[in-house]
Structure formats: C-alpha cells, structure tokens
Design a protein around this nucleic acid. Sequence first.
RNA 1: GCCGUUGUAGCUCAGUGGUAGAGCACUUCCUUGGUAAGGAAGAGGUCGUGAGUUCAAUUCUCAUCAACGGCUCCA
Length: 645
Amino acid sequence: MIQISFPDGATRSYEKGSSALDIAKSISEGLARKVLAAKINGEVWDLTRPIQQDATLQLLTWDDIDAKSTFWHSSAHLMAEAVEAAFPGAKFWVGPAIDKGFYYDIDLGDRKITEEDLASLEKNMQVLAKQNNSFVRIEKSKAEAVAYFEEKGDEYKLDLLQNLEDGTITFYQQGGFTDLCRGPHIPHTGFIKAIKLTSIAGAYWKGDEKNKQLTRIYGITFPNQKELDEYLAMLEEAKKRDHRKLGKELSIFTMDDDVGPGLPLWLPNGTIIIEELEKLAKETEEEAGYKRVVTPHIAKESMYLTSGHLPYYADSMFPPMSMDGETYYLKAMNCPHHHKIFDAEPKSYRDMPYRIAEYGTCYRYEQSGELFGLMRVRCLHMNDAHIYCTKEQFADEFRAVNDMYLKYFKIFGIDKYVMRLSLHDPEKLGQKYINEPELWQETETLVRNVLIESNIPFVEVKGEGAFYGPKIDVQIWSTIGREFTLATNQVDFAQGRRFKLSFTNQNNEPEVPLIIHRAPLGTHERFIGFLLEHYAGKFPVWLAPVQAKVLPISDKFVEYAKEVGQTLKKQGIRIQVDERNEKIGKKIREAELMKIPYMLVVGEKEMQENSVGLRLQGKGDAGMITVAAFGEKVRQEILERKSMD
RNA sequence: GCCGUUGUAGCUCAGUGGUAGAGCACUUCCUUGGUAAGGAAGAGGUCGUGAGUUCAAUUCUCAUCAACGGCUCCA
C-alpha cells in the first residue's frame, strides 16, 4: 500500500500502482469524469500513470492552469494527427501549450498550408476527437528512439533527442499519431469538444533567423462550445480597445504612406495629450531636481563610436548621411548628447547628482515587420533623462527614480505591469554586453538591492540587459496580448568612461560618474498607445482632448450655448459647442462615441437658471448644475489630474 | 528582414474580364426636436502603385509599396 496525501491535509491508503484516475474514481465518479491531469509531488502527471510510492496528490480540473496547459498540449498532438493525415510526411518540431491555446511547428516540405486548410483540419480534428482515443505513454530507450526517427528520416526529433539524457525516453500515441513527448497528456481526445485553429505563421526553427522557417499553426480548444464562444467574443471585445482602432476613431493620430511606415502624424487631439503628458513630466522633473535641456536630432558618427552604440546598433539606425566629408546619423538615443552636456563644463562633487531631462526625438530603423501601430514606431519622443552621480549617491538616486515610476503609475491607475530586472548573459560578454564581468556583478547586485529594499515585486531575466548595464523594465501587454516595455530605468557603468566624463571629488581627484538612464513615461508613442487601450479611449478629464461639449436642444439656444462655452473656455477648459441643426439625441450619441467626459445639454430651463444639464460619458444624465459650479468642479479635477470613477 | 493574409469613397464593407455600389460621415434644404442615429436631395472613387496578358483589366499574372497575424529584433 502507498499513502496519498491530499491538498486538504487528508491522507488515504491505496494499492501500490494505483493511478490518479483510480483515486479520483474512489472519491467520486463525477470528479473522475472531470479530472484532466494530476499533480504528483508537485509534478504534473498523466492520470493513468501508476503511482508506486507515497506521494502528495492534487487532482487537476479545467479551472487549473496546469490542467489547461496539459489539455492544450494534448490538443497540439490532436492537431498534429490531423496535419499528418492531410500532409503525409510532414515533420514535426515542437507543439507546446501557450498562454491561450497551443501551436505546433511543422516542416511541410514544399507544400503550403492556407487559411482554407484550417477549416478542414479543424473538421478532421473534431472527428478524431470524437473517437475518444487514449493518449498512451510509451517508454523507450534512447537508442530505440534514435533508431525510430532515423528510420523515419526526422531530423527535427533527432535533434531534440540529442539534447536529452540517456535513459528512458517517452513517446505518446493517440489514434494513428505517435510523437516524442515528455508529456503529460489528458486521458483521451474525447475531452476536446470545441476547436478553433486561429492562424498560420512562419516561425524560425529554434527561433533563429538563420535557420529554416517552419510553418506554425496556432489553435485553441475548450472542453465545451460555450467557453470557445466566450473566448471568441472576448477577442472581439479586445479588438474594440485596440489603440489603432481607437486612435483613428478619436482622431488621435494617423499614418500616411507618403510620410513613411512607422512615422505617426499626431492630429490635434493627440497633440493635446502629448502636451498634457509633457506638462506632467516637466512639473514632476522640476520638483525632483532635474534641469531641462534640448539637443539636436543628429550627430556625427564619431560620437556614436565613442558611445559604443554604433557597433551594437548600426543596423537599427537610419543609414548615415554625408556632409562636408563628415558622416552624420539621426539620433536613435539621447544619451550621448546628454553626456556631452555633462562634459561641457567642469563638474565637482558639489554638482552631483547632475540630472538633465529632455523629451528627445529619436529615430530608430525598426525592421519593417516589427512596426505595430503606435507601440513600435520609427520616430519616437522619449521621456528621457540622465542622472550623473557618485557611487555613494547611486542607491538613493535609483530609488528616487523608481518612486517616480510608482507616482506616475498611481496617477494613471496602472496596476497591471511587471517590473523586470534585466541582467546580462555571461556567455555573451564582449558580444552583446560590455566585457566587464565584475562591474556587471556589482551593479546588478546594487539594483537588485534597491528593489528588495523598496519592496517592489520583480522578476529577473538573464540576457535582457542593455549593453552598458543592467536595467529595470516595466512590461505591459497590449489588448491583443503583445508584450511591450513601457518604461525603463537603467544603470550605465560604461559610457562615463567611454566619454571620459569626470567630476572632481572631495580629495581633488577626477572620478568617473555612474549614469542612470530613465524614461518612466517611455515614449509618447508607446505611452499614448498604451493609455488608449488602458482607458479604452475614455481619457480622464485632464487628458481628454475635448473635456466638455455644449449641446443646445435647438437653434434657439445656440447663443446661450456659445456663452456657456466662452465662460468655460476662459477658465482653461477645453470645450466645444455643437451648433449643428441636429436633434439632441444625435448630438449626444456623437459626443458619447467620441468619449467626451462631460456633455452639457442646454435648453429653456438651463438658460433661465444659468445652468447646464450635465451628462456623464457612459453614465447618462446627472441633473442640472450651474455653469459656475461646473467650471469649479472641472478645474479642480484637472488640477488634481483626477482619474475617472 | 522572413513566412502567411489583405489593399474598392473620409470610415465599415459589397461587387464585376466591358472604366463601380451600400450604410455611416460630408454639403444643401425641410424639420426646432429634452438625454445614444428626424426626413429629402446632392456631392464624393484614375478600385494601393507599376508593368504584363487581352480587342478590353478594378477583376487574371508578375513586381513593388503599405497594413494585418506571427517569427526574429527591440539601446
């Protein structure tokens, strides 16, 4: 007998070799029908795999994230079975579960799969699923496994095998499909009731662009049709929040073929948001002891050789231009210019920390396939600043920058983000990272400690650092699930020396400053793209391009509406008057669609009482209010940069 | 940059080997209406661009540009 302990603390005895499914059945038949996989001693197992020793057991149903992964991984196998039937000889690389669904990378040889094929694959998957084929775990020795795939001529699986240790290799088989696979899997295909193959894409083998491109098919499955329908409906909802769609609807920005890809044109509405953000940044930075600077958009090649950017990033800078025998580049970053400002006048320890800030315009030649609305562009306006400080000042300065981030996030109500401590990869020292192993260690520890001391939750990621030092990136996800770095806070121990920057310390010796690069509001492009999605276009009053719109009931009240408009405009409120000869319902509808926070309906009653009929966007009629009281209320909300309830 | 898809009016989208259509938006007129679309008329497109096939191309072929879904990249 073996002892099985359950999550609630209970322990029960079972016969040696019992499976998790046997145990589930012993508890209840209903549970046994629902359960998809089991966690044995914290490791996810097939339900049918015999348990030979005492263990802790957790039965996993659809609600559990590990069960979903198992379910989707099994669905990938089911899809592979359908693909193999439709494209005999197809070779399979890997087919993992992902956040939402699964994919499989496939080498189809010369054949091509099209969107139309997806429908027939889906149908065949339905048929195969209904056969309730079991996922059978088969153990083989490595030699047997190698022989099997050599016979099959499958170089992909042979490659996978190479990296596996000698010993037992597991295969899984369902219906007519067998695959090298670590598992685990759900008991049988019958659980998969609702299937949607979502897209076809190219994907480089092993993610390396020098390798052959495989065909990747993405899909998602559910244990019932209802959940699939809900999922598809949710995707539709997400599309409505897409900043590209909202940006057009709300006249925030536009793109034009003649201007060029990735070069957004900011329309008047978008420009208002830009200016409000800059106002916020300038106030905040002024308060935090930054000085403002302005630098040119171009610089000579020599400066980027000094900075060390050129060898690392030449490919993603716009090609150089030649003038008077000199080579110039459009700037892709502001730091070298700022270093030159630091260097323009001699500095002593009394000048430190020296903080300079600029909304710098940068140009980056992002690969054409990478451009994405406002989130990934070729012309960007960065909320940039550089802090030059002594080693002793570093921790305080770095902490102050983090605090500034948190202050901003509070204003914008940003709570869904991940702070990522991005470190170097020791294997790439000298290639992707400056070859200073000890300095890396030292600064990474410094940054980590600041985060720990400030009680900021974070994750560490190797190989994501800048070439000159570690950094903290704030990661966000667009409504369609793409990941972006919204803001960044970086340490730089390299450029100070490269630019021969120094200050005179208290011992009258020259000392190289540490540099902090920071951009809490990221770039206008990405930040506004993010805000559009974050607020679903419903900007708080202080950011809203039009803060209130006066809607006269009929022509008779246009004069009064204009008066109200003038009064509020004088108070600094961004206001419009809808003078058109339209019914009030239509004026309201359009103001609602433009997501204008306050609609001021004016007619006979309001005119007599020097009032407006207040309507709140998305909430409806809020009753009468005097013009004076409304002006006071809105001025206060703007001043506080109040977020909408 | 790579794989795949798409490109028709300001927007959303139909459609055809014989030089194009709807709804909304726009203009004018009628209507003066109290909280999400009042009515009528009108104007608006060299069908992304270039070349080829054809008597004839928006439609077929090729190239190119751009957008979209991914991959790679992201100072």
